[in-house]
């Protein structure tokens, strides 16, 4: 170990501050209202655990605040659908909960924190297929950091962030981490 590595890392200015996160969520909520238009009652926001789940709940709350229409929310855990279990090892499962009215014939918007390779979204699409038959499926993410490995794109993006593969995008949300912020750490920009 060298001496320099024992020094505290210089503070990294957040990519998104708490205010930025709130603003971005509001913007995406407006976009969703615009897109769904008269079909808001048909809309189901399905969060991908871990941090997609609280994001979906926030979006729903903002949509209701702006439009006056309550929106159904659910979560779908994708662990059992992942194609990279052998690489990553097993992990504890999280909730899968859908609205009692189900997803058949409705507009499902998958919500996740970061869009990277696209593999999580693919697993979520596989899971949805086993859960019902939506009219359409769209995707909303807080951050799109590029480096897709599958032909998948987001319909609603909070912020596009060019990154290198070796960097990490860390999303912190108050419900889980105690505060809202998005950090870009490690590697070379």
């Amino acid at each position: 170990m060298t001496m320099s590595s024992e020094l505290p890392a210089p503070p990294v200015p957040p990519l998104l501050s708490a205010e930025d996160v709130a603003r971005v969520v509001d913007r995406v909520a407006h976009q969703l209202i615009e897109k769904a238009a008269s079909h808001l009652a048909d809309l189901v926001l399905v969060g991908i655990p871990t941090r997609g789940a609280p994001l979906a709940r926030r979006l729903a709350a903002r949509i209701e605040a702006f439009s006056g229409t309550p929106v159904d929310v659910g979560t779908v855990d994708i662990t059992l659908y992942r194609d990279d279990l052998r690489l990553r090892g097993v992990r504890a499962l999280e909730d899968t909960r859908l609205p009692d009215s189900g997803i058949d014939g409705r507009l499902v918007v998958l919500v996740d924190d970061v869009l990277f390779s696209g593999r999580s979204v693919r697993a979520a699409l596989d899971a949805l297929r086993d859960l019902g038959r939506p009219r359409a499926v769209q995707l909303a993410v807080l951050v799109d950091r590029g480096h897709r490995e599958l032909p998948i794109r987001a319909d609603y993006v909070g912020k596009n962030v060019p990154t290198s593969r070796t960097q990490k995008v860390e999303v912190h949300l108050a419900e889980i981490d105690g505060l809202d912020e998005v950090l870009l750490t490690g590697g070379e920009a």
Binding site: L80, A92, L93, D95, T96
Partner: peptide, 12 residues
């Protein structure tokens, strides 16, 4: 972990 995973699988 086994019991929690069981519950999640049942729910899923």
């Amino acid at each position: 972990l086994v019991l929690d995973t069981t519950a999640q699988i049942e729910q899923a």
